[in-house]
Amino acid sequence: MTVAGQGTLQAVPGAPVVDARDLTVVESGNTILRDVSVRLEAREHLTVLGPNGSGKTTLLRVLATYRYPTRGEVSLLGHRFGRVDVRALRPRVGFVSVALDPLVDAVPVLPLVAGGHRGTTAPSVRILADPDAVTAARQALTQVGARHLADRRVDTLSQGERQRVRIARALASSPDLLLLDEPFAGLDLGGRESLLADLDRLLTDPGGPTVVLVTHHLEELPPRISRALLLAGGAAVASGPIAEVLTSSQVSAVFGVPVIVERADDGRWRASGSPPGLDETVRLT
């Protein structure tokens, strides 16, 4: 199961990409996640929605191998936490977060993305001597519509351009699982729509990763997301096929405000305030 010389665990054939059961995370006496389960086969793309403090980012950190649950079982690509060195799984998992930005703000884009091929946090330009890393970086930048940014420096980019570079860096290692934590945060309308289109194309790539996307907003869901998990107070309120989960009544309950959920003919979702007197359990699809 290990790649010679690299120590990277490969996916077990036929195993789910994610098989997490009854996850509970307790910190300083506070239960952040409670009995949450997620199972994803290859190419089953999931969105995790919920208000602030509902446990979304904590769930992603568990799936990214950076946090162990207090209770429960987690297997990624057929490898169970506690039975393998999770560091050997990390090259197979792309985790997109703004947390690394202070380390790479003045780094040129191409070596930064090429470093993702090797799992390097803040690479030097010497990595450009590795033709495999450079090829992987250019391919990843192309996947997210950012090939033209290769020669720019990160601190000269707009928020939308930075987010494309973050995602490209995660894709450079050809991960089996891609975790996106609020990828549209800070983007204006144009930036959001452009990135949405690029992500939706990525979701159709037969050789691409299984994607888990965390957000607060239904309008930020690519049409090809197929499954949804609603979290509130650290617990799962609903989980399953997206059309069964994103109902007006369930979304209203999770966010604590009456909304009407609609899905357009092109597959895009939206949630709007419910007019006074309208039955909140109405479901529009």
Rank of each mutant, 00 (worst) to 15 (best):
D151S: 09
G82W: 00
L199Y: 09
T135A: 12
A129W: 03
Q139M: 14
V257D: 02
G78Q: 10
D105N: 09
V74N: 00
K56V: 15
S124V: 08
D265L: 15
V113I: 14
H79N: 01
I225P: 06
L178Y: 03
S274A: 13
P69E: 05
A253D: 13
A136N: 06
E262F: 08
L177V: 02
S28M: 06
G115M: 15
Q159V: 13
R147W: 08
D101K: 12
S124L: 06
D132I: 07
L141M: 13
V25Q: 03
N30C: 15
V245H: 08
R201K: 10
G240A: 14
A99R: 15
T204M: 12
A133Q: 08
L49P: 11
A170G: 03
L278K: 15
V98N: 02
V125W: 05
H216S: 14
P69G: 05
A172H: 03
V211Y: 03
G191L: 10
R192Y: 00
D151V: 06
L246R: 10
A232E: 15
G191E: 13
R80A: 05
G160A: 10
S75L: 01
D35H: 12
H45T: 13
G186R: 08
G82E: 00
V96N: 06
A106D: 13
V257R: 14
D265P: 04
R164M: 09
D266Q: 06
L246F: 09
I32N: 05
I127R: 02
R162Q: 11
V74I: 07
A228W: 09
T57S: 15
Y66P: 00
P16E: 12
S97R: 07
H45M: 08
S28P: 04
S274K: 10
D132S: 05
F255A: 04
D132V: 13
A271W: 09
E244R: 10
R147L: 14
L112A: 12
V38K: 06
R80C: 00
L171A: 03
I167S: 04
L157P: 10
D132N: 10
S37R: 11
T204L: 14
V154Y: 07
L199V: 13
R71D: 05
L195P: 02
A232G: 12
L195F: 05
L33W: 01
A228C: 13
L189G: 04
E161D: 14
S97W: 01
V86T: 07
D265G: 11
P222M: 11
L89N: 01
E27C: 09
V144R: 03
A228F: 13
G234F: 06
V62S: 01
V113E: 07
V251F: 12
S239E: 10
Y66K: 02
D265T: 15
D19H: 03
L284E: 05
S174Q: 14
V109P: 05
S239N: 08
G267S: 08
V237P: 03
V237S: 04
T2F: 00
Q139L: 10
I32T: 13
D181R: 09
G116R: 02
G240L: 14
L40I: 10
R201A: 11
E262W: 05
D22T: 08
L218C: 10
T58D: 02
L187W: 08
D200C: 12
A136Q: 11
R34T: 15
P131C: 02
L60T: 08
T156M: 13
V154A: 03
D151N: 12
A42S: 13
V214N: 06
T204W: 01
A140R: 03
G53C: 12
R162I: 09
V104S: 05
R21H: 08
A236K: 04
